[in-house]
């Protein structure tokens, strides 16, 4: 494990010295969270100034959205809807984009710069190398995602919670999802990106292929917005188990790629 840390720390040092990568890592999540908070602000302001539109809005919503909200007043229902519909899948997109920026450079970049060979001839096991390559994007992407969540909590709770007797955001589903689903999802995304980077002919090809990984997240967002609520107390345990199994399978595949064919002729 120590050598995996050496590899990750070396790569973090390189990332910290890359102005453009650092710029994107900071700018992208800030913009995404800022936009979400602003949208919720405008949305709440509109309905608070146009209370007559609240009923119309609620009646046009799919019934699945309003499930479990029967104890709330109409304005409270309106307040809680945006974070229920778009909020959580949004928090899968942030780590996916963050890790993609770093991981597409992983093996493909090392191969392009001829730095992979010294690493492959050093006494580092395939497991240590793969773990190092996982830690490199995983840690910063998770830190950025959790920091973004903290920012979102600060902004959104100010807009929404005053309309309730006790705070409703973040609720247990949000906290469990961000604390557990996000890391498991991120680990799977990183592993898939590493597999792509190990087989891709160039960084450009790896970046292009990584974009395909955002389709499942966009699918989740689409399902949520059509009323199919994926994040609930009933679905979360299954989601966690499935993601853990997927991560284990991808890790095994990653080791096989390193050992058998991906990096050597």
């Amino acid at each position: 494990m120590k050598k995996a840390w050496f590899i990750a720390m070396k790569e973090w040092r390189e990332i910290l010295r890359d102005f453009y990568v650092m710029g994107i890592l900071v700018f992208l999540p800030l913009t995404m969270v800022g936009t979400l908070v602003l949208l919720i602000h405008f949305y709440m302001t509109f309905f608070l100034q146009n209370l007559d539109k609240v009923q119309l809005m609620l009646s046009s919503m799919p019934s699945a959205y309003l499930k479990g909200l029967s104890g709330y007043s109409d304005i409270q229902k309106v307040a809680i809807l945006p974070i229920k519909i778009v909020g959580l899948p949004f928090f899968l997109l942030i780590p996916l984009l963050m890790s993609g920026i770093i991981t597409s450079d992983s093996f493909a970049g090392e191969r392009e710069r001829n730095t992979l060979e010294p690493l492959l001839t050093a006494p580092v096991t395939d497991r240590q190398l793969l773990l190092g390559k996982i830690l490199t994007p995983f840690v910063p992407a998770l830190v950025v995602t959790w920091a973004s969540f903290a920012l979102l909590t600060k902004g959104v709770s100010k807009l929404i919670n005053p309309h309730f007797l006790s705070p409703v955001f973040p609720d247990t589903i949000w906290i469990v999802s961000v604390a557990l689903v996000v890391p498991l999802f991120l680990a799977g995304a990183v592993l898939a990106e590493i597999l792509i980077s190990a087989r891709a002919s160039s960084v450009k090809a790896a970046s292009a292929l990584n974009m395909l990984l955002s389709f499942p997240v966009l699918g989740v967002m689409l399902m949520q917005s059509t009323g199919f609520v994926l994040f609930s107390a009933r679905t979360l345990p299954w989601m966690l188990l499935s993601l853990a199994a997927l991560d284990a399978a991808l890790f095994t595949a990653g080791l096989r790629v390193l050992r058998d064919k991906g990096l050597r002729g």
Partner: peptide, 16 residues
């Protein structure tokens, strides 16, 4: 790998 030192073609250094 422990008993080997290999210098292959280009230096391949981490530029940063």
């Amino acid at each position: 790998r422990r008993i080997l030192g290999a210098l292959i073609e280009q230096p391949g250094l981490y530029g940063k």
